[in-house]
Design a protein around this nucleic acid. Sequence first.
DNA 1: TTTATTTTAATGTATAAACATAATTCAAAT
DNA 2: ATTTGAATTATGTTTATACATTAAAATAAA
Lengths: 242, 242
Amino acid sequence: MKFTVDHKSPVPLHAQVEELLRALIEQEEYQKGKVLPSEVEISNRLAISRSTVRQAIKKLVFEGLLIRKKKAGTKVAPKPVSSKSNNWLSFSQEMKLRGITIRNFELHLSWVKPSDDIARFFEISKDKNVLKMERVRGKTDEPFVYFVSYFHPRVGLTGEEDFKLPLYEMLEQEHAIIASLSKEEISATASDEFISNKLKIKKETPVLFRKRFVFDQGERPIEYNLGYYKSDSFIYSVESSR
Amino acid sequence: MKFTVDHKSPVPLHAQVEELLRALIEQEEYQKGKVLPSEVEISNRLAISRSTVRQAIKKLVFEGLLIRKKKAGTKVAPKPVSSKSNNWLSFSQEMKLRGITIRNFELHLSWVKPSDDIARFFEISKDKNVLKMERVRGKTDEPFVYFVSYFHPRVGLTGEEDFKLPLYEMLEQEHAIIASLSKEEISATASDEFISNKLKIKKETPVLFRKRFVFDQGERPIEYNLGYYKSDSFIYSVESSR
DNA sequence: TTTATTTTAATGTATAAACATAATTCAAAT
DNA sequence: ATTTGAATTATGTTTATACATTAAAATAAA
């Protein structure tokens, strides 16, 4: 693995460092408690300033991935046994939590006429186009999930944006849309030809099928999402309390 | 309200600023969308550096309290609307909602030695017996779910009680045990001979498989639960908000 | 050997300064 | 009237520097 940054990249240095660190964190030795290289060491190695390195580390500390102690150094945080906020993004968070980097590796956008179901959910006419987004997510060459999403026109997506940020961060920052309620229905089903292809599994393998309906603060529909999860490699996890 | 910092205080400046900002944020005008004073303005007003002010603001942004935009400035993030606590009993509630009456129609109790998994979860020795409960639930002649539960000895079940009340109501009333945290892992799997029998479905049919770990208020384990859901007739539903 | 003490190596705090980037505003040119 | 462009003003990024604080590790003293 290369451990360098690119000054010419449009991606800020601190974000690049953050990614490097995430990759580091995945390594078993660090999971087991080895201290990460110190700020000074990293900044020397990458030939950037300590401040920039700090910025990256800080974010990971905030996310709860790293723990730091003066003099002792920076370590990977032990996996939370119990944890607070029961967030409906639990799924992707869980992934981040374990330091696994999931990437979108097929992303396809198109404008389509909504199906009956979708038109009804969005409360729009069937003539109006909606943005359809297909995604495969997983590790390189190991797809985990196939998603199809439909976005309400109100959201204001053009289909031209780049999806480097997590989707909901982007929506919040760029479109001032805050997803605050979701309803999900989960079932098991046998994968058909299409899904088998996407997830690189045999036909008829059981997959987890999830329908998700996402609403904004005014409880207005913003996303209609279907997800097919490869079930052997993947577990949908929910944590809740009362 | 005074808007100053104390250089002699042991509390770091950025933390002091953070507190000041939190107080500001409480004010109605900001809640309603007024932009906060800019970094430069704040740093001038407090006679500290911009970096320090930034540090404070950054934390609040990270917490989701503030939203910033270049040129536009920093505003209080709109609050998510309602958050009725997402109840982990959603499953049976959903059923009630649809007016379907679910009954337990096979209930079998036994004392068994725990498996490795269970012993580890309960943090008890493998010699100690635990109460195992098997249940089939559904409509008459139409099983929906097959459950296996194991209860921690601490719970104090004898195996003699009758389970007319919902389980957790009974635990609360009779044993003063309050289940307050649950973690679930959901996946899809093909039903084997045993499960096919219980659910009256063909072998190899996809079923929803759910592991549930239930904890009491002290986060001590009380139940280890496996559920197999007939997937065509059944949908696991989750509603959550933030 | 045990106990103080000092050194040292890590993170933490604070500042200053320069330049980048984005969105608004307002004036000039078309 | 509309477009273009420049100035302005916010946040965003990056560097450099100085010193504080903490806790481990090394050393000296009992």
